[in-house]
Design a binder for these strands. Structure first.
Length: 493
RNA sequence: GCUCGUGUGGUGUAGCUAGGUCCAUCAUAGUGGGUUUUCAUCCCGCCGACCCGGGUUCGAAUCCCGGCACGAGCACCA
């Protein structure tokens, strides 16, 4: 028993609550290789961030490497975008806090895939199939072998040549991996590895690639071969790719390779956004429905960045969700609360008066007032309000309250547009409101993205010299990011 | 239809591999209060969950069987 089940004899250690990411199986410090493989066919979305963060954090934790791989092997259905090849690495570095260790572009690796395809054909575990997709579907359902399956390696090589030289046209032939047509899972039966694409009419957008190749690998073949070439040890991906793992494992067995450890995550939806598709976003942006990839209404990484969501908040958010296979739907407030923790301690306070009404002060009062830039950090300095012209701006909503206290200044009673100073010290529990001196006010705009709409609130804003990109807290409104001296993009409350 | 996977509070998540120490963790949301001259931050409290039914066992969130629900794959897309 001691040999067969030693754990039964041991006293089990007290369980400790796990924090952070689940443990990586079979991982060795310094020898872990992970990859994140997006298709550069559109903006990096919120969802892509999960792939970057989870893989990237594991790489960090295990002192391993992270490969950023562009799976750009479809020029017709999902044509790549040239500038994505530049944008994605930058966004990945921003999000991770380090640059991916390696960048691999599938369209640069075609010769390697050809070489493996040929090896497959010569070794007899792959064949060129001239059945139509429709026809093959019948074989797959009926668990019967297609007539091309018994082709000799010699014939396969000959047919492969016809694919390469263009004798065959797209749709005429594909290369299949020979698995077993009686496999329980229909998805695994003799799956397609490479097909032809009309790159004359649909050239690959990268210079040097263009119409160079007629035959292109499909995801399962390309990914499997590339993972092996790069020495990937762990694959973490969506559970929609579970059957891909099984297909690729079959291919690895043919080649005599060992498949990496694999983990999956489920689908994530954001309450406020619902489902979103890269292709749809790309169409909408191209149609001018949005200002660009970073339009604050979009669930793209660049939009979130522009909106002032920090990389740290995004990382904390995704790590907290972990790597479970459940399909989940999360509220944005969860991300925002992480962001608040990141920015509040630094964010200077600023007044923004929506629907401003000017009020003239009457009675004795100082000619200038100073308040803290940050209530918890006096060392950040003071904000000065000059009251020589005795005019202040208040939000019209607050005006109706009659008696109120101007934050850090005085108790006021308002009738019409006149504010009678009743006391400089606080005398009672009247509501405290934010305000702005006429002398320090400028016309400002607060841009808010709500329910898919872009709303511009025009109001009176406190003068400031904060550079673009500064995260500020608008008193009683919420956090925002400085876009220009007079424009602030609302982040969240 | 076939195949695969997942079901813990409103939302996420820990615990499940090796059953007890779990009247079930943490976070977020909600709610009540404290600090604060912001409806911010911070602090304290409360609220609220093991999909259902059997079985094994002294003991089941955890193991077994059967349901049910939800999701995904079955593309010459990724």
């Amino acid at each position: 028993m001691a040999e067969e089940a030693p754990h039964l004899l041991e006293k089990r250690e007290k369980k400790e609550r796990r924090t952070g990411l689940p443990e990586l199986k079979n991982a060795e410090k310094g020898k872990v290789v992970l990859r994140f493989a997006p298709n550069p066919n559109g903006p990096m979305s919120f969802g892509h961030a999960r792939g970057i963060v989870i893989n990237g954090e594991y790489a960090r934790e295990w002192e391993g490497e992270l490969i950023l791989r562009f799976d750009d092997t479809d020029t017709v259905v999902k044509p790549p975008l040239v500038h994505a090849y530049d944008d994605i690495p930058k966004e990945a570095e921003w999000l991770l806090g380090y640059a991916p260790h390696r960048i691999v572009i599938a369209s640069d690796q075609i010769p390697h895939y050809y070489e493996h395809a040929e090896r497959m054909l010569r070794s007899g575990f792959g064949y060129v199939c001239q059945c139509s997709g429709e026809a093959f579907k019948v074989f797959r359902v009926d668990k019967t072998e297609c007539p091309c399956r018994p082709n000799s390696p010699e014939l396969n090589i000959e047919l492969w040549g016809k694919m390469l030289d263009g004798t065959f046209k797209p749709g005429d032939a594909v290369v299949r991996v020979k698995t077993d047509m009686t496999l329980k899972n229909p998805a695994l039966r003799d799956w397609p590895a490479l097909r032809m694409q009309d790159t004359a009419n649909h050239p690959h957008p990268r210079p040097g690639i263009g119409s160079k190749y007629r035959v292109w690998p499909l995801l399962d073949f390309q990914s499997a071969v590339e993972d092996h070439l790069q020495g990937v040890t762990h694959i973490i991906r969506g559970k929609d790719l579970m059957d891909s793992t099984r297909k690729q494992t079959l291919l690895y067995e043919h080649f005599g390779w060992t498949y990496p450890e694999t983990m999956y995550w489920g689908r994530v939806k954001v309450h406020e956004w619902g489902g979103f598709s890269t292709s749809q976003m790309r169409r909408d942006i191209e149609a001018g429905l949005f200002t660009g990839w970073d339009d604050p209404r979009l669930p793209t990484l660049s939009a979130l960045q522009k909106r002032g969501i920090t990389a740290e908040a995004l990382r904390a958010f995704w790590v907290e969700l972990g790597v479970t296979q459940k399909d989940i739907s999360v509220p944005l407030s969860s991300l925002f609360s992480h962001n608040t923790k990141q920015i509040d301690d630094e964010a200077p306070r600023l007044a923004f008066i929506r629907n401003g009404e000017q009020v003239t002060l009457s009675g004795e009062h100082p000619t200038s007032i100073e308040v803290d830039v940050h209530p918890n950090h006096p060392e950040q300095g003071k904000r000065a309000f000059d009251l020589t012209p005795p005019h202040v701006w208040l939000e019209s909503q607050d005006l109706g309250k009659g008696s109120l206290r101007l934050k850090g200044f005085a108790d006021l009673h308002i009738t019409d547009r006149t504010g009678e100073i009743q006391s400089i010290d606080r005398q009672d529990n009247r509501p405290i409101v934010h305000w702005l001196s006429e002398a320090q006010s400028v016309d400002g705009t607060l841009i808010m993205a709500e329910d898919g709409e872009l709303i511009e609130l025009h109001g009176k804003m406190e003068q400031h010299n904060y550079p673009e990109g500064t995260m500020v807290q608008l008193e009683r409104i919420g956090y925002g990011r400085v876009l220009s001296p007079t424009v602030i993009l609302f982040s969240h409350s």
